[in-house]
């Protein structure tokens, strides 16, 4: 490898200097805007500080103890996990289905792709307001469709039993296209001659093709899509903030929303920092799990 041995060749020192000069602006900003604040959030979560306080008092695990005793936090965490648990399988499953179908048809491919991807590129906040109308108890599309099918209807966003589900539906609608596009990329990476080899080996049924080639070859893409969808789902905020504000009856209270309420609305800054740390830990756990699974596959699979 070309390891760094500054000064050992003509211009070696100049090259090292140039490298630092080129990297420095981004490096400084990165530390100032991302890495420094992460450390700060961690430290802040061990204090009792609120915005405007003159003194910063170290209270150790005080905030975390308070969190553990806070029913709103537990509701919020539970809701977030339910949201992720519902929307990730739905997004990944539907995304995979859409990818397989889109790749299997000859015509109108680009139309379908554009249609499924459009929500990813649109302004979620504006579309959330449209969804509010879609969920309207009397004239909304959702209830009209259910009524036509003879199914029971409800006031989706104001019924504590289903409000979170309604929010999850919007999430799935928005992220499905992303999952699809990533799966399509994965599918296009499957060498065609594997299918040909399989056909020569006598297995040319569609199910066999899927089970023996597509699915195993799609493994890494699947892990990746699940991780990304999970991370994005953990970040659910916009829809809750504009449609339900955590209600009704805290049934859509999610982590980031609680964090914003505590940290910015109620100015319990350090407490908000502690919630942020919990949020960060969950996100990192997903990434670690993804890395471990992919590593295993790479080594043993």
């Amino acid at each position: 490898m070309a390891e760094a041995r500054a000064g050992k060749w003509p211009g070696g020192r100049a090259e090292a200097l140039a490298a630092w000069a080129l990297a420095l602006p981004a490096l400084i900003l990165m530390i100032l805007m991302l890495l420094g604040p992460v450390v700060a959030v961690l430290l802040l979560s061990f204090t009792g500080w609120s915005l405007g306080d003159a003194e910063m008092e170290w209270i150790g695990l005080g905030n975390y103890e308070q969190l553990a005793a806070d029913p709103v936090f537990w509701t919020s965490l539970r809701n977030t996990l339910i949201y992720v648990g519902v929307s990730v399988p739905a997004t990944v499953g539907l995304g995979l289905g859409a990818a397989l179908l889109v790749e299997s048809v000859g015509r109108f491919r680009s139309f379908y792709r554009a249609a499924y991807f459009l929500p990813v590129a649109s302004t979620l906040l504006a579309m959330a307001l449209v969804w509010e109308f879609m969920f309207h108890p009397t004239v909304g599309f959702v209830n009209q469709a259910l009524r036509t099918l003879g199914l029971p209807v409800t006031d989706w966003l104001n019924n504590p039993d289903v409000a979170l589900l309604a929010i999850a539906v919007i999430g799935v609608w928005q992220n499905l296209g992303l999952a699809m596009v990533l799966f399509v990329a994965g599918l296009q990476g499957v060498p065609k001659d594997l299918y040909e080899a399989l056909a020569l080996d006598g297995a040319d049924g569609a199910w066999e093709r899927f089970r023996r080639v597509t699915w195993p070859m799609l493994g890494p893409a699947l892990v990746f899509v699940v991780a990304i969808t999970a991370i994005r789902s953990f970040q659910v905020f916009d829809t809750v903030a504009v449609l339900t504000e955590g209600g009704p009856n805290k049934s859509t209270e999610v982590l980031l929303y609680t964090m914003v309420q505590e940290g910015f609305r109620f100015l319990r800054t350090a407490y908000g920092a502690a919630i942020t740390v919990v949020f960060l830990v969950f996100t990192l756990a997903i990434t670690v799990a993804q890395t471990v699974i992919l590593d295993r596959r790479a080594h043993y699979g």
């Binding site: 041995r5 050992k8 060749w9 003509p10 211009g11 070696g12 100049a14």
Partner: peptide, 23 residues
């Protein structure tokens, strides 16, 4: 060409040592 350094030896162009010169 000066794109890589040496561990030993000399490079001369027209009789003049150029080891320290950049490409």
């Amino acid at each position: 060409a000066g794109l890589e350094g040496t561990d030993q030896g000399e490079v001369r162009l027209g009789g003049i040592e150029v080891g320290h010169l950049r490409p």
